[in-house]
Design a protein around this nucleic acid. Structure first.
Length: 257
DNA sequence: ATGACACTATTTTAGTGA
């Protein structure tokens, strides 16, 4: 079984690009973030045609998350309780015995902005929500907008203390690990310096100026079945003249019987 | 020093993103 997470930066603008990726990579379950569309504007049939069922938590213009699955969806849920006013940022499903949740964490804007405190509170509520799920086989994936360690950002320790790199944000990332989750990319690639996001501006991708802020977090029983994890940086590049998202997909392969 | 690029709706300009 192949699973993935990807912040697509606008699903309607990215639809043809996403189609190419699905055909080439053939994932079974995908968590998508920054859909930027509500259900009425969502191209459900395009994904049906490719064999995927969609669980959507949409929103007009901003945010929005979805799960695509070509395995039967047994149950689904939308929204982070107590954080409804922060927008459509969490959606989950139970598929093949797996609890699969994908999230788009608030950005925070700046340390001085009121959204920074809201980001921290949102991450607190996410950890509580996840613990409440009690999932034995679980995946919590998505764009967390946190750089967990200096090695996960192109500026290393130079960026410590800036937004995305603060001790407060990093404590909340670590709290997810203390709740029993494992950062799959880091677990299988302990010494890699690899990123999942590069700014569109200033040739950031070309110069290697990126951050690792997109994650596949998994419970131990899932980790035991993981055979490979990679950041699909080839799909941060233009394809057939189509513009890429500023995020690359993160993919894991699992032995799932 | 600043902006750089891309998306969307509030659309021909502004807000957001990270």
């Amino acid at each position: 079984m192949r699973i993935a997470t990807w912040n697509v930066n606008g699903l309607r603008a990215r639809l043809d690009f996403i189609r190419i990726w699905l055909e080439q990579r053939q994932p079974d379950i995908v968590g998508l973030q920054e859909i930027k569309a509500e259900a009425d504007d969502f191209p459900h049939s395009a994904f049906e045609d490719m064999g995927y069922e969609t669980v959507l938590h949409g929103q007009k213009g901003w945010n929005g998350v979805a799960v695509l699955s070509r395995l039967p969806v047994e149950d689904s849920f939308r929204g982070l309780p107590s954080q409804k006013d922060m927008g459509a940022r969490l959606v989950g499903a139970r598929i093949a015995g797996l609890t699969f949740v994908t999230v788009y964490c608030p950005n925070g804007k700046s340390l001085e902005h009121e959204d920074y405190g809201r980001k921290l509170a949102w991450l607190d509520d996410l950890a509580a929500f996840w613990s409440g799920q009690g999932a034995e086989k679980g995946i919590l994936c998505g764009d967390l907008n946190v750089v967990p360690k200096p090695a996960d950002g192109w500026r290393g320790e130079e960026a410590d203390g800036e937004i995305f790199h603060t001790p407060e944000e990093r404590r909340r990332f670590d709290a997810l690990l203390r709740a029993g989750l494992v950062d799959l990319f880091r677990e299988l690639n302990p010494d890699a310096s690899a990123f999942s996001w590069w700014d569109y501006r200033g040739g950031a991708f070309r110069f290697g100026h990126g951050l690792r802020i997109d994650f596949l977090l998994a419970t131990r029983p899932v980790l035991a079945r993981v055979t490979k994890v990679e950041i699909d940086r080839d799909f941060r590049k233009k394809k057939e003249g189509l513009t890429a998202s500023d995020h690359a997909p993160v993919i894991a392969d699992l032995d799932w019987g």
